[in-house]
Design a protein around this nucleic acid. Structure first.
Length: 168
DNA sequence: CGCAAGATTGGC
DNA sequence: CCAATCTTGCGT
């Protein structure tokens, strides 16, 4: 169970991928060659141009461009001028959906995750299938997880009520 | 071109 | 409760 997830894993609806990522291993190889693996414990789904909480609802811009690509790529962005949030693009080209990694074992909160993994803008568009810096490996499926409304998106109207946050 | 707000966090 | 810190999207 240490295989890198195949491209197919990400080529599904984000509402399938987000919960399926719980329990999987997020792997980061740093510049000094050190490899660390972290169990994913919290995710959120952002689903296409309709979802007002999803950045892609702004349309295709330099920032959201990568979300419109095929699943399996990394979407990172800087929030509040200091935190790089990690998202994994899902679905087919044009779906414009992604999973926000909100928590890994021993590190709760999307801003902390980005800091721990030492992410920056160079990870924008990184390919999870062939990258030597970041990827996801398979692990025992987790069937017991909780759901809730997504955090910090009160501006999204009725979309804020979707139970699209998944966590252990 | 100016400006308000942001998928957050940590400190007072 | 509020500042940090800077990119982005939108209005002028």
């Amino acid at each position: 169970m240490t295989d890198r997830l195949s491209p197919d894993f990400f080529l599904r609806d984000v509402l399938e991928v987000a919960p399926a990522l719980i329990g999987k291993l997020l792997v980061r190889q740093f510049e000094d060659g050190r490899i660390e693996k972290y169990r994913i414990i919290e995710t959120e789904a952002y689903r296409g141009t309709e979802d007002l909480a999803c950045h892609a609802s702004k349309g295709r811009t330099p920032r959201t461009e990568v979300m419109f690509m095929e699943g399996g790529t990394v979407y990172v962005y800087l929030i509040y001028g200091m935190y790089w949030l990690l998202n994994l693009v899902t679905g087919n080209e044009g779906d414009a959906s992604a999973v926000l990694i909100r928590g890994i074992e021993g590190c709760s909160g999307p801003g902390r995750v980005g800091r721990k993994l030492q992410l920056d803008k160079s990870f924008y568009g990184e390919n999870l299938v062939n990258s030597s810096r970041i990827w996801v490996e398979d692990a025992e499926p987790v069937t017991e997880f909780k759901t809730s409304k997504r955090i910090g998106i009160g501006y999204a109207g009725e979309w804020a009520n979707k139970l699209w946050r998944f966590y252990l």
